[in-house]
């Protein structure tokens, strides 16, 4: 049993892709993607993408890291194993700064890398668009829009017709095992 996995259409230039993306967005599609060999200025707006929440993930993780670093050192040296070192106070915040700062950065970096994985749904080993032979040119000179069935507005025939109408060439319906 085969079912539709995605519909792709190719465009000639980055500019065409950008304007096609605007039309797809205006038509009400939300689960579609644009593929190009390089970043295109203004694409985020054209696709109607919101700002990535990654910054907040990084910020939250960084603050957590600083709290863990400061808290652990403070707790050990004042509560768990109080020890007077070179005549300094038990709560000597100056000495904690390095590790607090290091964990601030480390947790923030973890948040950035793994948060990016989660937001991009990585790892993912395969994607239906790779069934298309022509799609390989996306790493060289190809510009594609793909729309997937998960989109509420998706309809195999209408969507293909729509992509042709907005100037897409070689509209291809990709099917795979259900």
């Amino acid at each position: 049993m085969k079912e539709v996995k995605a519909i792709i259409a190719s465009f000639e230039t980055p500019g065409e892709l950008l304007h096609a993306a605007e039309k797809v967005r205006d038509e009400g599609y939300t689960r579609f993607d644009c593929h190009s060999p390089f970043p295109i200025h203004g694409m985020d707006d054209a696709m109607g993408l919101k700002r990535s929440p990654l910054g907040f993930i990084v910020g939250g993780m960084a603050v957590l890291g600083a709290a863990v670093g400061l808290g652990l050192q403070g707790w050990v040296t004042t509560v768990e194993y109080p020890l007077i070192l070179s005549g300094k106070a038990l709560w000597s915040w100056q000495a904690y700064i390095i590790i607090t700062f290091a964990l601030f950065v480390l947790f923030g970096a973890f948040g950035a890398v793994f948060g990016m994985f989660v937001l991009n749904r990585i790892p993912r080993w395969h994607h239906p668009v790779f069934y298309s032979d022509r799609f390989a040119s996306v790493t060289d000179d190809g510009f594609f829009i793909s729309i997937e069935p998960g989109d509420p507005k998706f309809d195999a025939e209408n969507t293909a017709a729509f992509l042709t109408a907005i100037g897409g060439k070689d509209v291809e319906t990709i099917e795979g095992d259900a």
């Binding site: 070179s86 005549g87 300094k88 100056q94 000495a95 700064i97 390095i98």
Partner: peptide, 9 residues
């Protein structure tokens, strides 16, 4: 500067 001077005292 501050921490190193504080530390070595």
């Amino acid at each position: 500067q501050h921490m190193l001077i504080w530390y070595s005292n």
